[in-house]
Design a protein around this nucleic acid. Structure first.
Length: 751
DNA sequence: GGAGATTCGTCA
DNA sequence: GACGAATCTCCC
């Protein structure tokens, strides 16, 4: 009987296409094939094979492509992701299927050179320099040798031609060495040891131990759609564990031991990091513990290297991958552990193309692979805390800092009582604290989450406020760049000399502070102190930033002024004072997660203080010292924050408790969108709220979508919603146009 | 994701 | 009403 293959193509297509399988070609599920699509040839993955009676008029599969088949677990993940996010299946597949591209195949072979011992025929000055460097007989890269000798590449090439240097093709640099789980076990505190024991025990339940009490993660869509959610404890599932440790408690060392245990048992481990934190510093730290660097996977890894990592992961030769969210789609042969570091980070959310949250997909992949997932954070997201409280996730806490260090004392500066001088932004009490800190030789950090010089510019003559022409936000003055910049969309214009509205010359006033302006104030207050401003938009890029972070860490500066990038990762052992210049920033943003985000950010920032020998303290400049978030920070009791916030969310129906709400964004047919909204509101089970936004109000990201309009729905239980919406759409309100439904579990991105 | 068909938006 | 730009539809 002729054979038909269902082929999923990595394009924005909702379902697999059917192709005839030519006689003699024996295809199995997961294999990569070449197929005709319209006028061209593309690749696809076999999603199913079936016997089909009768001659078919289907186009035939062209042939098999010689790459490893997509593992079952990944196909399951693709199906799951597509159903959950309502993304086209093909788009989900595209994330898991990255075929070698042209650049990857034509990678140049690296050439190493070393002295051959022969003297060059014509020893010029440049040649002598090169040979002096190469005299040690060591093997070097061609360009490395030229650089070290301070000459151009052609000199080296000349010496190779001459025979004075011999060139040898080098084996490609290994993407990862095998980690040694017992390389250098660092001494752990008692609390860390206990956490490690608990974690390892959870990962490897004794065969006769009772199964975990509850299923983890969301029910799989298949189960939910059928209404067959497995009863608690039905199967022994690998657990999802929240590893919650205050800043400086040594969470990393704890999960490193989990990784070591996983490697010892011969399985692979994946450590996910939010993009920004994927630094060389972390890889070094890993190398100290395991004696080898892990494979690093992120958008910057390209070409052949990417392919080699994929191949190594497929073959099971690479034991540990440290990567950004896309590493979730690597074809691991035997995944034994997933760690999501800083699980609360918003960077785990993919906002373009397929919308997904890497933390949640990690839990899903863990479930599919039946491997444990560790979510690590000092300030977990509310969702994760709620999941832990409900018993879906296990929780291991590290309530104290490593090495007996204390968490910084946090105090408020009430800005209503202790006002800065006119035109200044640092309150006298904070100025005094900084002075005290720097005179005793310690470092102070002034934190303000505002880039640029001033967040608003207005004309004193006519009151004109400079606004972005694309968005409705104020333009931020950047003095270094002499420009007014929109932080929303990137629009920039030259800072005008005279008002563009009334023409008055030199009468524009900056309103409010940005880090550049604070730097100015600090320079006046502490003219003889070394100051470094750390802001993501400063010239010099990542290179300079790294150097400056290094300087700060080594104590080569007295006062640091920084935006949110100082909140994460880096260890500043000399820092004993953190001053938050505007603790209220972000509390009033209307974002349902404003409180959570502010709490997390300020907790992380203030936690920078006192990581070294001396204890630290933090001062928060605030106009609302009684605000629940500020009060929780001041009390030093984060449990209090979580309790209050979870209670408040539950009462207000905000995520993760929001029941059902719909948002309709219409790019160009507002009346159609409104009809949808009204129909949805009249539906048998109306959502809690329907919102219709026109193109002007809609976030840019949504308008850029390729659909005429788009229905976005958010709730924790998106699976139920999806079923509901499908039913609603099937009943079909008579509205023309192409309806696409997308689900985002996190509404804040488009509210 | 890409090509070809269709509709939109703007200008006279 | 025409024309370039934006958007939609179709690929088994």
């Amino acid at each position: 009987m002729p054979c038909v293959a269902e082929i999923l193509i990595p394009l924005a297509l909702d379902s697999a296409y059917s192709y005839a399988v030519p006689a003699g070609l024996d295809l199995s599920v997961g294999e990569v094939v070449q197929i005709p699509l319209g006028p061209r040839e593309t690749v696809g993955v076999v999603w199913g094979v079936r016997q089909s009676p009768g001659g078919s008029n289907l186009r035939p599969v062209t042939g098999r492509i010689d790459v490893p088949a997509l593992p079952d677990a990944l196909r399951e993940l693709v199906d799951w992701l597509a159903r959950y996010t309502l993304a086209p299946k093909g788009s989900a597949l595209a994330m898991a299927l990255r075929l070698p591209d042209e650049a990857a195949l034509t990678e140049t072979i690296r050439v190493g050179v070393r002295a051959s011992g022969k003297a060059p025929a014509r020893p010029t000055a440049a040649r002598t320099k090169v040979l002096a460097v190469a005299a040690d007989g060591a093997m070097r890269g061609k360009s490395a040798l030229a650089k070290e000798a301070g000459v151009s590449l052609s000199v080296v090439d000349g010496l190779i031609d001459d025979g004075a240097l011999e060139a040898v093709a080098l084996a490609p640099e290994p993407v990862a060495q095998p980690p040694d789980p017992d390389h250098a076990r660092v001494p752990l505190s008692e609390a860390q040891e206990a956490a490690v024991r608990e974690l390892v025990a959870l990962m490897n339940p004794a065969p006769d131990a009772p199964p975990p009490t509850d299923a983890i993660g969301d029910p799989l869509p298949a189960a939910a759609a059928d209404g067959k959610v497995p009863p608690p404890g039905a199967e022994a599932k690998a657990p999802t564990v929240l590893l919650e440790g205050v800043t400086g408690s040594g969470k990393t060392e704890v999960y490193f031991e989990a990784v070591a245990d996983c490697v010892r048992r011969g399985h692979q481990a994946l450590i996910l990091m939010p993009e920004i934190a994927l630094t060389a510093q972390f890889l070094d730290r890993f190398a100290e513990r395991f004696g080898a660097r892990p494979a690093a996977w992120h958008s910057g890894v390209g070409g052949k290297r990417r392919e080699r990592i994929r191949a190594g992961v497929t073959a099971g030769e690479i034991a540990v991958v440290v990567g950004a969210r896309s590493a979730l789609f690597l074809p691991f042969a035997d995944l034994g552990l997933i760690v999501v570091d800083e699980e609360h980070e918003a960077a785990y959310k993919q906002e373009d193309g397929v919308h997904y949250h890497a933390r949640d997909m990690a839990v899903v992949r863990g479930r599919i692979e039946n491997c444990p997932v560790v979510l690590a954070s000092a300030t977990p997201s509310i969702e994760t805390r709620v999941n832990a409280e409900r018993g879906r996730y296990r929780r291991i806490a590290l309530p104290e800092r490593f090495g007996g260090r204390r968490l910084p004392d946090i105090a408020a500066i009430d800005m209503r009582a202790d006002k800065p001088e006119r035109g200044r932004f640092i309150a006298p009490a904070l100025v005094a604290a900084v002075r005290e800190t720097v005179t005793s030789g310690d470092q102070a950090l002034l934190f303000l989450n505002r880039r640029g010089y001033a967040p608003l510019t207005l004309c004193r003559a006519c009151g004109h406020r400079y606004q972005c022409r694309n968005c409705s936000t104020w333009l931020v003055e950047h003095r270094f760049r002499r420009a007014l910049v929109c932080h929303q969309c990137g629009y920039a214009e030259r800072r005008p000399e005279s008002c563009s509205e009334c023409g008055t010359f030199d009468n524009l006033t900056p309103c409010g502070p940005g880090v550049e302006r604070i730097a100015e104030e600090v320079a006046e207050l502490f003219p003889d102190k070394r100051v470094i401003v750390l802001s993501s938009d400063f010239p010099g890029g990542a290179e300079r930033l790294r150097a400056e972070l290094q300087t700060v860490a080594e104590g080569g500066c007295d006062i640091v002024i920084g935006t949110q990038l100082v909140a994460k990762g880096h260890n500043f052992p000399h820092l004993t004072l953190v001053g938050v210049l505007d603790a209220d920033i972000g509390l009033t943003s209307g974002d349902p997660r404003a409180a959570e985000r502010t709490f997390q950010l300020l907790q992380q920032v203030t936690g920078r203080a006192g990581r070294g020998e001396k204890p630290g303290r933090a001062l928060l400049q605030t106009y609302q010292p009684d605000h629940p978030v500020i009060a929780a920070l001041l009390s030093g009791d984060s449990e209090r924050f979580y309790e209050e916030e979870i209670g408040a969310r539950e009462a207000a129906g905000l995520p993760p408790f929001g029941r059902l709400a719909a948002l309709i964004v219409s790019a160009n047919e507002r009346e159609v969108a409104e009809a949808h909204g009204q129909a949805l509101a009249r539906a048998a089970e109306p959502p809690d709220g329907v919102m219709v936004l026109g193109p002007a109000e809609a976030p840019l990201a949504l308008i850029r979508g390729r659909y005429r309009f788009r229905l976005l729905v958010k709730t924790e239980r998106s699976i139920d919603l999806q079923t509901y919406l499908r039913a609603w759409l099937a009943r079909g309100p008579k509205i023309r146009g192409n309806v696409k439904v997308a689900i985002d579990v996190d509404p804040q991105s488009f509210l």
